[in-house]
């Protein structure tokens, strides 16, 4: 273990973490006021978003600069990898809460409501449902856009891996092309999803208020979509760095962290496809 001789890189004092916390405070405060009909909240949120944007650029920027200056060697790199892995683990549990909700509602509470004839006479308690007092709606079919989106995301997983191979074998064009393709597929996915949402709201009577079906549908696919968006932004940043030539075959944690994230988002989608759309 030769790297142990060199010492671990402990960064200097940094204003970014506290600024980020402050920005999140103002954002949360603004949001809380906004949803309680206090219109000042909006201005808080706008200011906070600007601050948070500034911090993210600054913070990530300084990490990248440190990396370029050769501060991060194998030892530090391992910390980043473990950190990212455990972060994704926590994200898995976040989605688990919503999947657990879906299973509970489908298999326990809706059938039970169907048996509670004393309160909900005539309610059948079968899935999909908007509940005993809910509005009518059409459930989302699996084999149209969702199936197409599955294909798109699966191909994007292939393309990002292809880009990784390019990086390892120092084929710049393959790296950049693969990343660009992945981002394009991600955007295509989001476009289809936006279309699907629009269709659901305007023509199918399917919205957040459409009982537990609508609620679980939009919360699960919505949080997934949000993660795709974050992943795509991450990929775009990585693409920019790839163009600048930041990555070498043995120092490219930035790339791999985003790629892991992308694969995680992909797996979540497969679960969604099976349990939300298909079954």
């Amino acid at each position: 273990m030769s790297e142990t001789e060199q010492g671990y890189y402990v960064p200097d004092s940094s204003p970014y973490p506290a600024l980020l916390a402050g920005g999140m405070f103002v954002l949360a405060l603004g949001f809380a006021l906004q949803i309680n009909d206090e219109p000042v909240g909006r201005w808080f949120m706008i200011a906070a978003a600007a601050l948070i944007g500034y911090v993210l650029f600054g913070w990530f920027g300084s990490v990248i600069a440190e990396n370029q200056a050769g501060r991060f060697l194998r030892w530090e790199d391992r910390s980043f990898r473990w950190g990212m892995a455990w972060f994704i683990a926590s994200e898995v549990m976040f989605f688990a809460a919503f999947f657990g909700t879906l299973f509970y509602l489908r298999n326990i509470s809706v059938p039970e409501l169907g048996e509670t004839q004393l309160i909900w006479p005539g309610y059948r308690g079968t899935w999909p449902t908007s509940g005993p007092a809910g509005q009518p709606f059409t459930p989302m079919a699996a084999w149209g856009i969702p199936a197409l989106n599955t294909l798109i995301l699966l191909s994007s997983a292939v393309s990002v891996t292809w880009a990784h191979w390019g990086l390892l074998k120092q084929r710049r064009a393959q790296l950049i092309g693969g990343l660009a393709l992945t981002i394009a597929l991600g955007c295509l996915f989001l476009g289809f999803q936006a279309y699907e949402y629009h269709h659901a709201y305007t023509e199918m009577g399917l919205n957040l208020g459409a009982g537990v079906y609508g609620a679980t549908f939009f919360m699960l696919t919505g949080f997934h979509g949000l993660h795709v968006t974050i992943g795509a932004i991450g990929l775009a940043a990585v693409l920019g760095r790839a163009i600048k030539g930041h990555f070498t075959p043995d120092n490219h944690f930035g790339f791999e962290g985003v790629a892991w994230y992308w694969h995680f988002v992909d797996v979540v989608w497969l679960m969604l496809f099976v349990f939300v759309y298909w079954m």
């Binding site: 509602l105 326990i108 509470s109 509940g131 208020g209 009982g211 537990v212």
Partner: peptide
């Protein structure tokens, strides 16, 4: 935002 996770009228369950 109008969801019904914990409201029986929409098929939800407070016990969830």
């Amino acid at each position: 935002f109008g969801t019904h996770f914990f409201n029986a009228a929409g098929g939800g369950d407070p016990i969830l």
